[in-house]
Design a protein around this nucleic acid. Sequence first.
DNA 1: CGGTGGGACGATAGCGTCCCACCGGTGCTCTATT
Length: 479
Amino acid sequence: MKNKQEILDVLQSHFGFDDFRPGQEETINALLEGKDTLSILPTGAGKSLLYQLPAYLLSGTILIVSPLISLMQDQVDRLHRQGEKRVIMLSGQLVGKERASVLRNLKSFKFVFTSPEMLDNQQVLTALKKNKVALMVIDEAHCISQWGPDFRPEYLLLKEVRQQLGSPTTLLLTATATPRIRQDILKKMGMATAYQVIKSVDRPNIFLAGQSVATQKEKDGELLKLIQKFTGPGIIYFASRKLASQMAEWLENQTDLNVAAYHAGVAPIERFRIQNQFMNNELQVICATSAFGMGIDKNDIRYVIHYHLPSNLENYLQEIGRAGRDGKQSLAVLLYANGDEMIQRQLTSVDVPPVTILEQIKNGKLSANILGEQASLFEFYLEHSFTPQQIIAMFERRKIQTEKELQEMVAYIKEDGCKRKYLLTYFGEQFDGPNEFCCDNELSNWSTKLVLPISQPIPENNKMGWENRLKALLNITEN
DNA sequence: CGGTGGGACGATAGCGTCCCACCGGTGCTCTATT
């Protein structure tokens, strides 16, 4: 048990802060008492401190599970800049002798960053087991619930991994989670009794607006008007790569702004360049798919416009939450044409095979290939001792849930009352009542009345350091 | 699924209507082949 002064000393000596931000102290105290903790703090609340500070008060390794290599790289760089050298990223980039050497000498690292996929590797797990894991951290923990079942199944193995590591004190971190998602995360981690630190997901400086249009052409016109008035920096989200690219080109031609597209089909080196130019205010607008966002630490994004609706309100809140981290007036606009939800329905649909087919695949009587695109996913679950019945049940439940979430997303657009109230109610919160710059229900004709601050050019010496990130990127592209 | 955009077609000189193909995201890691 650490006393308060000891904790404040570390805060001052390692991080240079005198006070905690909301939710930080409570989380850190819980962890130091050995309580498994779920912390839901809004973006910009200083989540990395939650595990970095206890690191200096606990003996043993801090194991951080992160969904993206770029996120890990950011954290590694940040720790290096803080003067902490005992940091390693265990990813696919680390191979051969180098990997073997790191795994042999894991003890010499205080912070070990890794992906869920890596933890499914027996060598890695064995090496970790030989060390004391003082704290296990799952960053972006909503991925357990959202990416696990249908996209990155290794997320569902983390429960087992944790047990194999001797059930170390565990911290689950995210910015957005409804009560239902919280329950789901805790269940999938086997941590039903975890201590919970939950702060409001509300971001009062983000004005919430919706705009219904009859046709795509009309939507394009509205979009153009918006970005001409609110010059950015801003993000426009699309549900398709192709449209993101096309609209980026169109907007670039129609305006004086610098616009680029960002999605998984863009070459890694280009993605990297675009992100840096956006960070440095050399690009004002990014036309993106959901690939853009996690780990974007830019505080003066003035608006987030959705050309298409996302698959649910959690994703919506995540995406609009990238606006206005500096606390200044910002804007979220959702454009909607009848039938837009069809795209999402198609994107999220999974064909669930009959139990008998799965049983035959399990017994080796049938090749998983007959399941088409989803083959490897079902194969994964079968190979990891999920029974066909469990798998079917999981996917059926998921299907119903996905459709329900989409309906709630559509209901948000069609909501006649206060949008913020609807959103916060969805996240299980009370709402005290709107202010003037709350949402389009409280401020009619908002697009003429709303004024957003003008972003200043980034001074040359403040531009983001990117050398390490480029190095990491070249490692990826070299193989 | 259902909207959209392009092309064909028809009846008639500048356009309406119908049909049909097309669309559609998120990332990790390992492995085999050039």
